[in-house]
Design a protein around this nucleic acid. Sequence first.
DNA 1: AAAAGCCCCTGGATGC
DNA 2: TGCATCCAGGGGCTTT
Length: 271
Amino acid sequence: MPELPEVEVTRLSFADRIAGARIVAVHLGKPLRWPLGVPVQKLIGRTVLGVRRRGKYLLLDLDAGLLLIHLGMSGSLGFASQLPARGVHDHFELETTRGTLRLNDPRRFGAVVFAPDESSPQACKLLGKLGMEPLSDTFDATAFHAGLKARRSAIKQVLLAGDVVVGVGNIYASEALFLAGIRPTLSAARLSLPRAQKLHAAIRDVLRRAVDKGGSTLKDFSNARGESGYFQLEAMVYGRSGQPCKVCETPIKAIRQGQRATFFCPTCQKY
DNA sequence: AAAAGCCCCTGGATGC
DNA sequence: TGCATCCAGGGGCTTT
């Protein structure tokens, strides 16, 4: 579910409220993708300094170490002073002096991992190979083009891979390619500089607008306040197989690339 | 080194 | 209504 906009929206919905909170208890449910990597006791008494984001990871900075949180495919966080009773899919909970942070994740592809610091092996294993941050000022079109030049697989799959640019998942990859007028199957290396620049702008545009709309709620995404997102209503191609293109009315086509669905308009994205 | 497949897990939708 | 099958927003790991 959660791509960069959903993760960022989640972060914005609780970062200010949790900053300065002291951890008073930790509850673990079923195992997530990876073990926490620290005895729960070591977290008790720690203070949460703030929440950052890197790609689709949330970084909970503590006064000693940090927690890396990934929402996987079906994860969502809740943060409130009073949450309902824990359910079967609530697998991690941080009880703090400011409220309880809870991870609900039915499929358990998500994870919460402790790292002593950002350059530790624990953190580098997860963050080390991540590409450029698309919403940061350092995301530069020329560097983006150079990154694509080195890759021969389809542009859609290079976007998803996350080693050139992070945060673009299955929804926003299709959407950005539509906005840029690029066929998803085109080899990444074959994008000219002007087209790479167009895609660079399209990625920033679609991600920013999605954050503004509170992310996309396809099924069950909600931010840490429990609020849904509305960007799915603005999708030009994602999930619109067979429906008329909003620009030219050609039926939207769905194909599979690397076990994932890709949506595009055969007319607006000719090559 | 890069690319392609596999797999982790649960639940909802679809089809018989 | 019941059961099997397919599909889903991610991404690390293994194999080519």
